[in-house]
Amino acid sequence: MKEVNVIVLGDTHMPRMAKQLPERLLNEIRAADLIIHVGDWQTRDVYEQLKQFAPVKGVYGNVDEPFFYGHFKDKLVLNLAGHRIGVTHGHGKGKTTEKRALDQFSNQDVELILFGHSHIPLHREYEGRVLFNPGSPTDKRRQSHYSFGKLTLFKNEPIQIEHIFFVDKKQ
């Protein structure tokens, strides 16, 4: 049974926070079957770079240029290897980023919700769903490490989910 390897990233804020994608991220992307961006790409250049490696799916964030509003939505449901995955950025008013992400999919049958906005890596279960924020590979803010996510999916098996942490965004 074929596995599906997915790289999840968000909050790249390029070129403001980095002029290029970190080498640690590029090393993983080279083996990806799919790349999911959870928003705040900032410029179309990020999308153009990523699609050179694998197909790219994603949503727009709150600081993205107009291109993203025309080509992406604020939320997305993907069916990958029989798993339903919700994708959103998580921005908005009131509530926590996590709660806003959950609310986006309150009436939909998804087992995993991918979101960004806070730049805070998160992986936890809540009421039978898994919430995952990859953090940021280029703008860690007050976090100790830069980060992104990796999903490995097989049909009829639990999704393998991991964060990949690193300290230098230039490597």
Rank of each mutant, 00 (worst) to 15 (best):
N5E: 11
V6Y: 12
I7W: 08
I7G: 07
I7P: 08
L9T: 05
D11F: 02
H13N: 13
H13I: 00
P15L: 01
P15N: 03
P15M: 01
P15R: 02
R16M: 10
R16F: 13
A18C: 05
K19I: 04
K19G: 12
Q20S: 13
L21F: 00
E23Y: 05
E23K: 09
R24I: 10
L25D: 07
E28P: 09
I29K: 04
R30L: 06
D33S: 10
I35Y: 11
I36C: 06
H37M: 06
G39P: 09
D40C: 06
D40R: 07
Q42L: 11
T43S: 14
D45W: 12
D45C: 04
Y47R: 14
Y47D: 08
E48N: 14
E48H: 09
K51F: 03
K51D: 02
A54E: 07
V56F: 09
G58W: 13
V59A: 08
Y60S: 09
Y60A: 10
Y60I: 01
Y60W: 15
N62D: 14
N62M: 07
V63L: 12
D64M: 08
E65P: 04
P66N: 09
P66K: 10
F67W: 15
F67M: 11
F68N: 09
F68W: 04
Y69K: 14
G70P: 00
H71G: 03
H71C: 09
K73H: 13
D74L: 02
D74W: 04
K75W: 02
K75D: 02
L76N: 06
L76D: 09
V77F: 05
V77L: 08
V77P: 03
N79F: 03
A81Y: 04
G82S: 07
I85A: 11
G90T: 00
H91R: 00
G92D: 04
K95P: 00
T96P: 00
T97D: 12
E98M: 04
K99M: 11
R100M: 06
A101C: 06
L102H: 06
D103Y: 08
F105G: 11
S106T: 11
S106Q: 15
N107D: 15
Q108E: 15
V110A: 13
V110T: 08
E111Y: 05
L112C: 04
I113N: 10
F115C: 11
F115V: 01
G116S: 05
H117W: 01
S118A: 12
S118W: 00
L122Y: 01
H123W: 02
H123K: 12
R124H: 06
E125H: 03
E125Q: 12
Y126C: 03
Y126H: 15
R129C: 03
V130D: 10
P134M: 02
P134S: 06
P134Q: 06
T138D: 06
D139N: 14
D139E: 14
D139A: 13
K140E: 09
R141H: 13
R141L: 14
R141A: 11
R142S: 15
H145I: 02
H145Y: 14
H145L: 14
Y146S: 04
Y146V: 02
S147K: 06
S147A: 15
S147D: 05
F148R: 13
G149C: 08
L151I: 06
T152H: 08
L153I: 09
L153K: 03
K155D: 12
N156E: 15
P158W: 13
Q160D: 14
E162D: 11
E162W: 00
I164V: 15
I164Y: 00
F166G: 12
D168N: 15
